[in-house]
Simulated scan of single mutants.
Amino acid sequence: MHSDIHLLLHTYRSAELRHEAAEFIPVRPGLRHRMGWTLVELGLRLAQSRPHPQPARAARTA
């Protein structure tokens, strides 16, 4: 394929893709989806903020 034809086809295809992208309307996630991710985020925050348990008695060396 000649480079000028390849460039022309690439130009047409990129124009088509830009046109499709301009028409795209993103769908808002549903309540169930948002609640699930909110609970995951909350769980991660709780896991990070919990202090590490200290041993009741430190090991001693003789």
Rank of each mutant, 00 (worst) to 15 (best):
L39K: 01
R45V: 08
T11S: 03
G43R: 00
I5P: 01
I25C: 11
P55L: 02
G36C: 02
H19T: 06
Y12G: 06
R50C: 08
L42P: 04
A22K: 09
E20D: 13
I5E: 06
R60S: 11
L46D: 00
G30M: 08
E20N: 10
E23T: 02
F24I: 02
D4Y: 10
I25W: 11
I25Q: 15
R28I: 14
Q48D: 11
R45D: 04
I5K: 08
M35W: 07
L46K: 10
G36F: 04
I25E: 14
H52C: 12
L42W: 08
A56N: 01
A47H: 06
Q54T: 04
S3W: 12
R28D: 14
A62Y: 06
H19D: 05
E41I: 09
Y12D: 04
E16L: 05
P53N: 02
E16C: 03
L17E: 04
M1Q: 15
L42V: 12
P51C: 00
R28L: 14
E16Q: 08
L39N: 01
P26T: 09
L31K: 12
G36T: 07
H52G: 14
R57Q: 06
L9F: 05
R28E: 13
H19F: 07
D4M: 14
R28A: 15
A58Q: 05
H2M: 07
W37R: 13
H10Q: 14
R32H: 13
A22M: 04
A56F: 01
A59F: 07
L39W: 02
A59I: 08
L8D: 11
R50H: 08
E16Y: 03
H10W: 14
L42E: 04
L7D: 12
S49A: 09
R28P: 12
S3Q: 14
I5S: 04
I25P: 05
P55I: 00
S3A: 12
R28F: 12
V40C: 11
S14T: 08
L46G: 07
S49W: 05
V40G: 09
P51L: 04
D4H: 15
M1K: 15
P26S: 12
Y12A: 06
R57E: 05
R60G: 10
P29W: 06
P29L: 06
L31T: 13
S3V: 15
V40Y: 05
T38K: 02
L8H: 12
H10A: 15
G30L: 11
L17Y: 01
S3R: 15
S14N: 08
F24W: 11
R50D: 07
R18E: 00
H19R: 12
H52K: 13
R50V: 07
P55E: 00
S3M: 14
L9N: 10
R18G: 00
Y12K: 06
V27M: 13
G36D: 06
A59T: 13
A59P: 09
L9E: 09
R60V: 08
A47M: 05
R57A: 04
L7W: 15
G36R: 06
L39Y: 01
S14D: 07
R57M: 03
G43H: 02
L17R: 06
R18I: 01
G36H: 07
L42D: 03
E20R: 13
H33L: 08
M35V: 10
P53Q: 02
L7S: 11
